[in-house]
Amino acid sequence: MNLTLHVWRQKGPNAPGKLETYDAHNVSPDQSFLEMLDEVNEGLIRKGVEPIAFDHDCREGICGMCSQVINGVPHGGQDRTTVCQLHMRSFKDGDNIFIEPWRATAFPIVKDLVVDRGNLDVIIQAGGYTSCHTGGIADGNALLIPKPEADYAMDAAECIGCGACVAGCPNGSAMLFTSAKVAQLAVLPQGKAEAAARVNNMTEALKDCGFGNCTNHYECQASCPKGINVKFIAKLNREYLKAIAS
């Protein structure tokens, strides 16, 4: 099939950017979206045009590196699918495809479709851990964690930190990302000791990084390639109230 791409091109963080139009010819339905972009880039290089810069790495939907808004939806809007796992068979011959970077003040553009997501690391650094030391730990079975709790923690821990929740959120908020970590550690006994400080520090960091406030649009859950549920935000809110009360 043949497609028309409208791709955001921006030379650097402070340079002006705009949508450029490129043609993608002979696209195979079995190609992944990124492989289609690879081929467009090959064509651009041959023509002496600078190829489109985009983040990608594992190409199997787990590293969280790929980050493109396709036709207005982060990762292209297929259920539980990252851009790298999006395949061209979900497009039709002659389609116009708009490809834009994650947009949020807290994610400044580095180049073209590449953004700086360092602020997500800052949120984790504010408390997304248990303060255990290396070594000197009791046996793994010393703490019993019933299956429902372990499953709940795992549901939250599936977050790949790609930032789609922020890109999709009308408020540019990273609340789903933050809540996934808060909820995972709050439900496990080893995380409970620091739960109050964690929820305060992480939400404080979220604000300081320039992310917006959560106003319950739930667009984050719809954008999330791992289907992280907004129930974790409700859990974060409960944890916050508990912290206030304590």
Binding site: Y129, T130, I137, I145
Partner: peptide
């Protein structure tokens, strides 16, 4: 043990054992 202490959600049985 180290990973459990960090909050890695390993699979557990209903009684809570790894």
């Amino acid at each position: 043990d180290q990973c459990v202490a960090q909050g890695v959600p390993f699979a557990r049985d209903y009684a809570g054992y790894l």
